[in-house]
């Protein structure tokens, strides 16, 4: 099968999932107890005129099926209405918050790879030796540390006590030295667990690959051990790690929800928490939709990248 057809088939599976994601997000407001209008306006007492206007704006006077389609149309055009709590345009709010989260998440992801991949390689090659044991315990510790706790402690030690970093984000553009410096602690907080995950996965897949005959064959050819590991083993061992990139993304999003609050970082995660606490449902709905679609598309991308990396996929 050609790569094109593989991608086509993968897309065909993605469409119903996207449909499900939008439907689930749509039904969110309707699953809330009480009338949807109450939910949208945040359970405040409103005048009948406002109620009617809201009803019309969210198409609540239509049958559910039509409501969904109309909502979907609005969502595709990024038309999420206004927040009943803040009165601001939901799309604009999210648009303003998104870059901050992408910056933090991207930095944390790079950190996770930068630590996880070399650590995984070393642990696999030195399996059973002290280096591996230390790595295993470090990874377990990384997985077991609650990120909010880690964040608080880093904040306390390096910002409050040592004063190396600011406690609040600087009033500087996103791409600037001051912002980059501020992001050090949040990045470490967010990236630690991901690094541990990458490391463990890579270690286990490398261990499996190291036993393969092609590794012995590569050594028998007289290749330097570096080439054997970094060219032959690693290329095969990263494949299973690539498949969890979607999981990684979900993991980072979860982390961002917590970490952004600790470091007062104006991203989507913090917005989500604020919105939940304020019962700002249109904003919650929009954020959940954006996250859901991002993860579905990320998984699609992962599968395509996997197919490119692994020639055997294209049967």
């Amino acid at each position: 099968m050609s790569l094109g057809r593989y991608v086509g088939r993968r897309l065909a599976v993605t469409v119903p999932v996207l449909f499900g994601v939008t439907a689930l997000t749509f039904s969110f407001v309707h699953l809330l107890p009480g009338d949807a209008v109450d939910a949208i306006v945040g359970f405040r007492a409103v005048s009948p005129a406002t109620e009617a206007a809201t009803r019309a704006e969210y198409h609540l006077d239509q049958p559910v099926w039509d409501q969904y389609l109309l909502w979907l149309r609005d969502a595709i055009t990024l038309e999420f209405g206004e927040s009943p709590v803040t009165g601001r345009d939901v799309s604009a709010t999210i648009g303003r918050r998104l870059p901050a989260t992408l910056a933090l998440g991207g930095a944390a992801w790079l950190l996770a790879l930068a630590i996880g991949i070399p650590a995984g390689i070393v642990a696999a090659v030195r399996a059973g030796e002290p280096a591996d044991e230390v790595g295993r315990l470090a990874a377990l510790a990384g997985i077991a540390t609650p990120n909010f706790w880690l964040g608080l402690i880093l904040l306390f030690v390096f910002s409050v006590r040592l004063g190396w970093f600011r406690v609040l984000p600087p009033d500087a553009p996103l791409v600037s030295l001051a912002t980059a410096k501020f992001l050090v602690l949040p990045t470490i907080t967010l990236g630690t667990a991901s690094a541990a995950l990458v490391m463990r996965l890579l270690r286990s897949s490398m261990r499996r690959e190291l036993d393969a005959t092609y590794v012995t064959a590569a050594r028998a050819k007289g290749l330097p051990e570096r080439t054997v590991i970094l060219k032959h083993v690693l290329r095969n061992a990263v494949l299973p790690v690539v498949t969890v990139a979607g999981l990684q993304l979900a993991f980072l999003v979860d982390g961002a929800v917590v970490v952004e609050g600790i470091f007062s970082w104006p991203g989507m995660g913090r917005l989500l928490v604020q919105s939940v606490l304020q019962r700002d449902y249109p904003v919650i709905q929009a954020i959940v939709l954006v996250i859901g679609i991002a993860i579905v598309l990320a998984n699609l991308l992962v599968d395509i990248v996997y197919a490119i990396l692994d020639p055997r996929i294209r049967y």
């Binding site: 499900g20 689930l24 998984n299």
Partner: peptide, 19 residues
């Protein structure tokens, strides 16, 4: 399952809590 997997653990839990 695929649909539910599109939502991170914590985000989904957060969204479900008010329901």
């Amino acid at each position: 399952v695929d649909v539910l997997y599109a939502f991170p653990f914590l985000v989904l839990a957060i969204a479900i809590v008010p329901i």
